[in-house]
């Protein structure tokens, strides 16, 4: 299904592409294909996958089904960073870099704050995240106030709404590589991630270095999120929904569930992106469709699960 959507994603868009013309070597077709569609689809699949996996890790580590990568302020950090980038820098690359820096700053700050409390409880990390989240929101508001309402404010708002538009083959390389490397780490550590879901003392007596490992896993999961969000802007719901969908389908927490969570994320984001660029004459924010597709899907899963019991 991911592959089908990815293929569809390659060919849907304002500029009509067709396989015959591509094969016949139409130069314009190839340029659109390589620089716009391909990169966009890659980000859609990998990004959705990444958000799904990161969401799975967060929900497991925090033992909270409502946790998502946003919880420790990564998204708001990215937004503030992007806003600063739009205001003071120029070029989409600079905005991406600045969003990434903002996200990273927020996360490092949140984890450092949580380190002040030596007891190292999960709730401390969440609280620190909420504090950082509000700080970043405040910074964002200040930046918005200083923005030129005609152009800059609009592009800040548009960035925050999230879109895969404007992603070109030149800007995605670094982010996607980082994202893939971090995800590989998460998959390698997956057994430890599951162990972290046990109660703290229990996990420690199972030989888990709870504090250090949790920090490392969260940092890596957040890096994954940051590398995606800084490219696309905020994408709601994927990180929350994909793991739930995967668990409801798989009924277990295993490496395969994590994989499924990623695949669902990829499907959701890719599908949403296709709709975002084809439904209306203008590009729509992709978040509208991730929520629009995601919410009914979640309801369906919940209802379906109930019937079986």
């Amino acid at each position: 299904m991911v592959i089908a959507l990815a293929v569809a994603g390659l060919f849907v868009g304002k500029y009509p592409l067709s396989l015959e013309k591509l094969l016949s070597g139409d130069a314009m077709q190839w340029r659109v294909f390589l620089t716009l569609r391909l990169s966009r689809t890659v980000v859609g699949v990998i990004g959705g996958f990444a958000l799904g996996v990161a969401g799975f890790v967060y929900q497991t580590v925090f033992r909270n089904p409502l946790a998502s990568p946003d919880i420790i302020g990564v998204s708001s950090g990215a937004s503030a960073g992007a806003a600063a980038g739009i205001l003071f820098l120029s070029g989409s690359m600079a905005v991406t870099a600045s969003a990434f820096a903002g996200a990273l700053l927020a996360v490092v700050f949140a984890l450092a704050l949580s380190g002040l409390d030596k007891s190292g409880k999960n709730s401390t990390i969440v609280l620190a995240g909420i504090a950082v989240h509000s700080l970043a929101q405040t910074a964002l508001m200040c930046l918005k106030l200083t923005a030129d309402p005609e152009r800059e404010l609009a592009s800040i708002e548009y960035w925050i709404m999230g879109s895969l538009n404007g992603i070109s083959v030149y800007s995605i390389g670094g982010n996607m590589i980082l994202c893939l490397v971090c995800m590989a780490v998460l998959f390698l550590l997956h057994r430890q991630v599951i162990l972290l879901s046990a109660e703290e003392g229990e996990a420690r007596m199972l030989g888990v270095n709870v504090g250090g490992l949790r920090l490392a896993v969260l940092l890596v999961a957040t890096l994954v999120t940051a590398s995606v969000v800084s490219l696309t802007g905020l994408i709601s719901f994927v990180g929350l929904l994909a793991p739930h969908g995967a668990r409801l389908l798989a009924k277990h927490n295993r490496i395969s569930t994590m994989l499924l969570s990623g695949l669902l994320g990829g499907i959701l984001l890719c599908g949403a992106d296709i709709l975002a660029r084809s439904v209306a004459a203008t590009e729509l924010p992709v978040s509208i469709f991730t929520s629009f597709l995601g919410a009914p899907f979640l309801i369906y899963l919940i209802a379906g699960g109930r019937e079986k019991v």
């Binding site: 497991t60 033992r63 599951i194 879901s197």
Partner: peptide, 9 residues
Amino acid sequence: RSGISIDIS
């Protein structure tokens, strides 16, 4: 009580 609170076999 074990603190395991996720679906796991």
